[in-house]
Design a protein around this nucleic acid. Structure first.
Lengths: 195, 195
DNA sequence: CAAGATTGACTCGTCAATCTTT
DNA sequence: AAAGATTGACGAGTCAATCTTG
């Protein structure tokens, strides 16, 4: 019949949705194992981003995570009160706030990352690397098609917590700003085997 | 190096996350084009499920969408007040509530589905059906690995709004209940070319 | 008592309004 | 006036408590 292709695409959308949400469930579970209720998953995303960029502002966080500056501001406030994040007024433009991890915040992030990496690779070790790469490549092409057809704003691709040193999409699209890439810390720059 | 496979899997997770969230953005945009702010995306999920199953209860909705019964109850309440959903006390067990779409609710759902289908296939028409099928199949295998490694509850796979007449995952796993499948309406049962 | 639905107190997202600084 | 951050009112999620029915 004529719509075989459309049906295949709909199935793929469903599969990708289920896969993404299943991975998310696993990550949240690992976070609870490490943090024991001290931070939510949304808060961990903020901590992770701050840890990987150079003194980001509240607006940077909002843009990167695809949420409003209001939401980012409130989340930052809770993390500061909990002792995981520190606020500093920027010296050059005193409207902006520079954020950094406290020692506790940095420890939490690195413990979570080790735990999540371990859980993911232990569980998905049967996946063939070649197949995984081809699949990622197709999904990226489809994402690009969708993004070009939709809006024109220059926000990033919203990988959320799943940072890639060499973002496959960033390399293919010139008109999107990657907030992680812009503010990347020297010591966390892409390196062989680095994460 | 040794962790090439793990890096490929991490990239795939990022790609699938971005793809799922991009599709979601497109769907929300199409909903606003059709509904103009009268319903949120979460509310549309509830309407869609009610339209495709036989008189589901509040618990069915909660299980299917992966939210608490409290949240489902509140969403149902708003939809009833907005005139898109009707509540009926079940005749056999008067603790449960049977839900059905009003005429307005049914019209909204069908207009949304036409719009979303059109937008998706127009945008992704360059995708090769065979490639899409292989990709969906790999993602489903990975989802199964993750699910088996994680919890033991018998909830469904959370396809959200992306129903599949022949759910690829349902066919592969015996110990998961598909709420859509259980309560499927006769007139919407899998049929050649059906959706 | 157990189960289905609802309500209350809370977190986290939205938008709109406000405050400070440029 | 415009930009960055914050606050308030509200939608939607959580868990815990409650109410009705089985």
């Amino acid at each position: 019949m004529a719509d075989t292709g459309a049906a295949a695409v709909r199935d793929l959308v469903a599969s990708a949705t289920i896969f993404a949400s299943t991975v998310n469930d696993l990550m949240e579970e690992r976070l609870q194992a490490v943090a024991g209720g001290r931070v939510t998953f949304a808060q961990l995303k903020v901590l992770t981003l701050v840890g990987r960029t150079e003194a980001p502002s509240v607006s940077d966080i909002a843009s990167f995570l695809g949420i409003s500056t209001a939401a980012a501001s409130k989340t930052v406030d809770r993390l500061v009160r909990a002792g995981f994040l520190a606020r500093t007024a920027a010296t050059d433009d005193r409207r902006t706030v520079e954020l950094s991890l406290t020692r506790n915040g940095a420890r939490l992030v690195s413990r979570y990352e080790a735990e999540a990496d371990e859980a993911l690779s232990r569980t998905l070790r049967q996946a063939s690397p070649g197949e995984a790469r081809r699949t990622a490549s197709l999904l990226d092409r489809l994402s690009l098609m969708l993004i070009e057809a939709t809006d024109g704003n220059g926000a990033c691709f919203r990988c959320g917590i799943h940072f890639r040193a060499n973002c496959l999409l960033r390399n293919r699209s010139e008109d999107r700003t990657c907030y992680l890439h812009l503010g990347e810390r020297p010591d966390l720059a892409p390196s062989p085997g680095g994460r």
